[in-house]
Simulated assay, not measured.
Amino acid sequence: MSYTPKVAVVILNWNGIKHLREFLPSVLSSIYPNLDIIIGDNASTDGSVEFIKQEYPSIRIIENDDNYGFTGGYNRVLEHVEADYYILLNSDVEVSPGWIQPVINLMESDLLIAAAAPKILAYNQKDHFEHAGAAGGFIDRYGYPFCQGRMFYEIEEDKGQYEQSGEVFWATGAALFIKKHCWHEASGFDDRFFAHMEEIDLCWRLKNMGYKVMYCAESEVFHLGGGTLNVENPFKTYLNFRNNLLLLQNNLPFWRAVFVISIRIWMDLLALLRFLTEGKRKDAWAVSRAHQNFVLSLFKRQHQSIKDKRPKVTAADCTLPTVNCKKGMYKGSLVWEFFVKKKRHFTDLDPDRFY
């Protein structure tokens, strides 16, 4: 009898009792044979923990003593979880009974696969992709993330155009499958991110270490999105702009990072001006604060970044030469392609311009 890897679905919750009521039953319907379902709680005050204890007493709860965000919350919770695979699942995701097995089969097929994600569709419009991950994540040369099925705010209808599983640059944190040993080798999430783009940073670090990140088309889930931070929230704007700079700092060789970050700051200023012309002053200020925070962090000598805790490898120095560390990176500018050349779909991009 073949070995069935132990899988732990870990849902991080913060005041999300509404989502737990609606979406947890679908997770409990999962039919994978060697499965634990765990709730990690970031010091909720809405009765979430009491609800789980009363309605689902068999579910294990790991309670944090404060709200450490998505990054710190998972880092602390996963220290107490034993499994071969972790699945980091958002509390606002609906799954089907057989959603786990296809992804595990894919990841078991190659020792170099560290992380993967299923197809992410929109819960409220199930024939369309969802912004958070769609059909696998990619990134351009200036650090702008995009997906098969989503570029900036343009969301595609799922017409079967992305039914081929394959290697991507990043896997969404909304339903992130990751091998336990890879999680620990990479030191988990970078706590500085708090939330947003932390999974891109993690996947990039894994790729720099010689691992692969995959998209599994044979599994699909439905994500509501905006469960914790609404898309219009200026704090979300702040995190996205600040974390994008951290992402580049963490993963590019030093002089390449200096060059790209310098360009990105100017490009971000254009976004700031656009927010001002649209009357979104709070978002414009959020961009400014993001830049201030990033620059100040460069001078905090006492800060121990994620770089200090992980193996010293770079994109030009993969530990496993058979792996293309840049696989899934676009050589051009997504801003130029989208806003100037009006390319709205992933399939409009030149496939020869991907590494």
Rank of each mutant, 00 (worst) to 15 (best):
I104F: 05
I104N: 03
I104D: 02
I104Q: 02
N105K: 12
N105E: 14
N105R: 08
L106G: 01
M107Q: 03
M107W: 02
M107N: 01
M107C: 03
M107D: 02
E108A: 09
E108V: 00
E108Y: 00
S109Q: 00
S109A: 08
S109T: 01
S109E: 00
D110C: 02
L111Y: 00
L111W: 00
L111S: 11
L112H: 06
A117N: 11
P118E: 06
P118D: 06
I120H: 07
L121G: 01
L121I: 03
L121V: 03
A122P: 00
Y123E: 12
Y123N: 10
N124K: 14
Q125W: 03
Q125G: 10
Q125A: 13
K126G: 04
K126L: 01
D127L: 05
D127T: 13
D127M: 02
H128Y: 15
H128G: 00
F129Q: 04
E130A: 15
E130L: 10
H131S: 13
A132C: 13
A132W: 14
A132Y: 13
A132P: 03
A132R: 13
A134G: 12
A134Y: 10
A135H: 05
G136H: 02
G137W: 06
G137K: 08
I139D: 08
I139K: 06
D140G: 05
D140P: 05
D140A: 06
R141N: 10
R141L: 12
R141H: 11
Y142N: 08
Y142H: 10
G143I: 10
G143V: 10
Y144Q: 14
Y144E: 13
Y144I: 13
P145Y: 13
P145F: 13
P145V: 13
P145Q: 10
F146G: 09
F146C: 10
C147W: 14
Q148L: 07
Q148V: 02
G149Y: 09
R150Q: 14
M151G: 07
M151E: 04
M151Q: 12
M151I: 15
M151K: 09
F152W: 15
Y153V: 07
Y153G: 07
E157R: 15
E157I: 09
D158H: 04
